[in-house]
Amino acid sequence: MLKVENLTYKVKDKILIDGITMHFNVGEIAIVLGANGAGKSTLLGLLSGQLKPNSGKLSLVDKLMKDFSQIELAQKRAVLSQHNVLGFPMKVSEVVLMGRYPYFESTASKKDLGICREAMSLFGVEKFADRNMLSLSGGEQQRVHFARVIAQVMDASETQQKILLLDEPLTFLDIKFQLEFMEIIQTFCKTKNVMVVGVLHDLNIALKYADRLFMLKNGQLIAQGKPANIITPKLIEMTFGIQPNIQELNGKIQLYF
């Protein structure tokens, strides 16, 4: 379990994250929603260690995050971001192997290589393994990065809980692959001891895949709970300032604007 207690982050006098308390469980997809500027990215920055909180505590299974070394953290936490670039040409298999860098000194173990193969087949990129990364299309490259990041947290266990952070990874993907990706992540998080915490813009996708939703506004957590209790006209209007049309179709809720 990842616990966030009374987390506050400010830049000069501007409070960007205001005393947030929340927790995340393994096997669960948690999605943070909010309008632009609500503090979603800042919160993710704090969870990923890119930003240091002014006050408050972050702890993973009762150990404070700041007491882990940087390498230990990289073994426990991976971040999937929306835009990845590779500065120089490299083989796809070499890029995926980077996900295992926190685990070996100079030579990858059999286990590391096996995990890379598993991650590549999960995203259907094993057929590219020997290709130059930069010769692939944008969507294919993104899938390779997904495989790399998943490889980083693939070997989670009961005693080694791991965190997968999603920083709007769907932004540049077509709708088919957005859904495919979320299905993969859902299965992954249910079968491994991984907690998924994401920032997404698409409310329908959040509704479809999240186990719990968190609503942010002005750096404060204004609501949290099961999607059906959070995606309500009142809360949506409060957060985004527009009124949605909520319809039920075959027992599933859909939003229209």
């Binding site: 990923s48 260690g49 890119q50 940087q70 390498i71 953290l73 990289a74 073994q75 936490r77 991976a78 971040v79 971001s81 990845n84 980077m98 996900g99 860098y101 926190p102 980083q152």
Partner: peptide
């Protein structure tokens, strides 16, 4: 950023 996430 990615290097940081990989523990560098």
């Amino acid at each position: 950023t990615e290097a940081f996430h990989l523990g560098v």
